[in-house]
Amino acid sequence: LKKGSQVEALFSYEATQPEDLEFQEGDIILVLSKVNEEWLEGECKGKVGIFPKVFVEDC
């Protein structure tokens, strides 16, 4: 996944840490960066945070 690409949430993700990005199933997320193999940083609904890659798929 490249910076600036968009992904769609397959499942809702509930934030458990302040840096987490919370979203609902079906939301479109703009990928800002790759944190590591399992986590991405993205923006959704004006909020920025990190989230697990397994919760999303390429649009």
Rank of each mutant, 00 (worst) to 15 (best):
E37P: 01
E37Y: 08
K47E: 01
S5G: 00
D58I: 09
V48I: 11
D58H: 13
K2N: 13
V35E: 00
V7W: 00
L10G: 04
D27C: 08
L10M: 13
E37T: 10
I28V: 09
D27N: 02
C59M: 15
V54S: 15
Q6G: 02
P52S: 04
F23N: 07
C44P: 04
P18R: 10
F11K: 13
V48A: 12
K3Y: 06
F51V: 08
E25R: 13
F55C: 15
G49I: 07
L32K: 14
I29D: 07
D20K: 03
G42K: 02
E19Y: 13
V56W: 06
E22G: 09
L1W: 14
E57H: 11
L30K: 15
E19P: 00
V7Y: 14
K47W: 07
D27V: 00
V35W: 12
S12E: 00
E41Y: 15
Q17E: 05
E43C: 03
G42I: 06
L40C: 04
F23C: 10
L1E: 13
L32Y: 09
L21R: 03
V31S: 04
N36C: 02
G4N: 07
E37K: 00
E8I: 15
L10Q: 00
T16G: 10
K3N: 01
L10K: 04
V48L: 02
F23L: 07
E25W: 02
Y13V: 08
L40H: 02
F51A: 03
C44F: 02
E8P: 08
L21W: 06
F11A: 15
C59T: 14
T16A: 06
K45E: 00
S5D: 15
L32E: 09
L1F: 15
F55S: 02
E22T: 09
S12V: 01
V48D: 06
D20V: 04
F11T: 08
L32R: 15
Q17A: 14
D27K: 08
E43N: 02
E57P: 09
L1S: 10
T16I: 00
E22D: 04
S12I: 12
E38F: 11
I50A: 10
D20F: 11
K2V: 08
F23G: 10
E38I: 11
F51M: 12
I28G: 09
I29T: 05
F55P: 11
L40T: 02
L21C: 04
D58V: 11
G4Y: 01
A9G: 06
E43G: 11
S33I: 08
E57G: 12
F23S: 03
V54F: 10
Y13L: 04
I50N: 01
E14Q: 13
V35S: 06
I29L: 06
P18S: 04
I50Y: 10
G46E: 10
T16N: 08
E38R: 00
E37N: 14
Q6K: 14
E22F: 05
K2M: 04
D58E: 13
C44S: 02
V7F: 07
V35M: 11
Q24H: 12
D58K: 14
S33P: 05
S12G: 07
K45H: 14
F11G: 10
D20Q: 13
K3H: 00
E37G: 09
S33W: 08
K34S: 07
L30D: 14
K53V: 05
K34I: 15
A15T: 00
G49P: 02
E19K: 02
D58R: 13
D20E: 15
L21N: 05
W39R: 01
E41H: 03
L1I: 13
V54G: 10
D20H: 15
E57F: 04
G4S: 01
N36W: 02
L1D: 05
C59E: 15
V56A: 02
K45T: 04
F51K: 00
E19Q: 10
V56S: 08
G26C: 05
E25L: 02
E43D: 06
A15C: 08
C44I: 02
I28N: 13
E22W: 01
D27E: 00
E43V: 03
E41T: 05
E38C: 02
G42W: 08
K53S: 07
S12K: 04
T16K: 15
S5C: 12
G26R: 06
L32A: 09
E8V: 15
P18H: 05
C59R: 10
F55L: 14
E37R: 10
S12C: 04
P18E: 06
Q6A: 02
E57D: 09
K47V: 08
V7M: 00
E57W: 12
G26A: 06
S5M: 14
A15R: 07
I50S: 06
E37L: 03
L40G: 00
P18F: 03
E37M: 05
D58Q: 11
D27H: 06
F55A: 13
D20L: 12
S5Y: 14
L40I: 10
E14A: 13
K2I: 03
E19I: 08
C44T: 06
I29R: 07
V56F: 09
V35Y: 03
A15W: 06
L10N: 10
I28P: 13
E19D: 05
A15L: 01
Q24S: 14
K45P: 00
P52H: 11
P52E: 03
P52C: 05
K2G: 08
P52R: 00
V54W: 07
E41L: 14
E25D: 01
P52N: 01
E38M: 09
E8C: 15
E41N: 03
C44H: 01
E19H: 11
E14W: 10
L32S: 12
E43T: 10
K53M: 05
F23H: 11
E25N: 12
K3L: 08
L1C: 09
G4L: 01
Q17P: 00
I29H: 04
L10P: 05
K53F: 01
I29C: 05
G46I: 04
E19R: 09
K3I: 14
S12M: 07
C44Q: 02
E41W: 09
V48E: 00
G4Q: 00
V48S: 08
W39N: 10
Q6F: 15
G42H: 04
K34V: 15
G42L: 04
F23R: 10
D27W: 03
E41I: 14
K53R: 14
K2C: 10
E43L: 06
V48Y: 10
G4D: 12
F55I: 04
I29Y: 04
L1N: 12
I28A: 10
D58N: 11
W39S: 03
G46R: 07
G26K: 12
A15N: 01
L21I: 10
G46K: 02
Q24G: 01
V35I: 09
C44D: 04
V7T: 14
G42S: 03
I28D: 13
E8F: 15
V7C: 00
E25Y: 00
K53N: 07
I50L: 10
L10C: 06
D27A: 11
D58A: 14
E57I: 02
E38W: 07
S33Y: 05
A9N: 05
Y13N: 06
E57C: 11
G46N: 14
A9S: 02
K34E: 15
K34N: 09
S5K: 14
E8Q: 15
E41C: 13
L10E: 03
G26N: 05
K45Y: 05
E14P: 12
F55E: 01
G42Q: 03
L21P: 05
E8R: 15
L30H: 15
K3R: 07
E14H: 14
K2P: 13
F11Y: 10
L10T: 05
N36G: 11
L30R: 15
E43A: 12
L40V: 06
K45W: 11
E43S: 12
V48F: 05
G26M: 11
F51W: 02
C59Q: 07
P18A: 09
L30G: 10
K53A: 09
G4F: 08
Y13H: 11
F11C: 15
A9R: 03
S5I: 09
G46D: 02
G46F: 03
K2R: 12
F55D: 07
G46W: 08
E43W: 07
F51Q: 00
E43I: 04
D20C: 12
E43P: 01
S33Q: 11
L10A: 11
E37A: 07
D20P: 10
G49H: 01
F23T: 02
K2E: 07
A9T: 06
L32H: 14
G42E: 09
V31L: 13
V31K: 03
K53I: 01
F51E: 13
